[in-house]
Design a protein around this nucleic acid. Structure first.
Ligand SMILES: [Mn+2]
Ligand SMILES: [Mn+2]
Ligand SMILES: [Zn+2]
Ligand SMILES: [Zn+2]
Lengths: 151, 151
DNA sequence: TTGCTTATTGAGAATAATACTTATTAAGGA
DNA sequence: TCCTTAATAAGTATTATTCTCAATAAGCAA
């Protein structure tokens, strides 16, 4: 519920000897403002930033996405073949999962608090520090079931 | 519980106008025989096949892995950066999920029947044909939490 | 069993997402 | 304000995966 602020990001970065840069702040903001149900690839983010007048290099985008995923701020999703998608990682009650058509990539989000609880408990039991917990349901959507296209 | 046979594979393939080849049969057998908890990348599979005297080309391996994943026979897992891993897709009570350290890729399997039920119900509700249902818990293992290495 | 159609294979080339390299810039702390 | 060094930008390199195409063989029908 409480938005993750640039100040909080700065603290977490500085704790580890890292730095808050305008690029990192801008990218965090993009994800905070992203409408629910949207997921960005590295290239999507690059384009979006350019459209808003921020010229952040692709290198920095890739580095930042990985960094924020490793920090648990973003979640890395395999919603399509060949490239990753990212969205902000929010706790319950915004936390959700994905039902994906493997043929056309149509994605439906759904919530289930029990799953996050299971994930939290499982990580804790093994002494792991939880970053993200995502149920991926791979399936074929109604339209693609009807399609006669191969595969 | 009941092993998925080459005959069953042949039926499913022929129904769609596709064919059972020795290569496909061999690859299915490899996964059937794979010890529990093992996951193979395309290259792992290629090496394993060569060691057993089967010279199946990498092209065929990639095609077959994707085909069997799309059929729901194999499950495609993101257990490490940069390449996919595969394992046989088994129903309850063998069905399981993965807790993964994003730093060293140490992976722990765990079972939870409620999750598969949720996945089945969610897919059904939306009219999707279920292929696979996997909870991925991304986390940092105890050893890596202690490590001072960056990222 | 034989022959035909066409899905599949193997080899190599092409693609594309991501990581790496290095000179330059600038964040954070003293 | 200065210094150390993390981070950036641009370009290059890497590499998993896909594509292309000629040769092969699975499945089917006669
Ligand atoms: Mn989402
Ligand atoms: Mn497994
Ligand atoms: Zn679809
Ligand atoms: Zn680890």
């Amino acid at each position: 519920m409480t938005a993750y602020t640039a100040t909080a990001l700065k603290s977490e970065l500085n704790e580890r000897g890292w730095r808050l840069t305008p690029q990192r702040e801008t990218i965090l903001q993009i994800f905070q403002d992203l409408p629910k149900g949207n997921h960005l690839s590295a290239e999507d983010l690059h384009n979006l930033l350019q459209a808003e007048g921020h010229a952040i290099s692709l290198s920095t985008i890739y580095r930042t996405l990985k960094l924020m995923a490793r920090m648990g701020i973003l979640r890395e999703l395999e919603l399509a073949e060949g490239h990753k998608h990212y969205e902000i990682n929010q706790p319950s009650p915004h936390h959700h999962h994905h039902l994906i058509c493997v043929k056309c990539n149509k994605t439906i989000e759904f919530k289930n608090d029990a799953i996050l609880k299971t994930g939290t408990r499982t990580a804790q039991k093994e002494g792991y520090h939880l970053l993200d917990c995502q149920l991926m349901i791979h399936a074929i959507c109604p339209a693609c079931q009807r399609s006669l296209l191969p595969m």
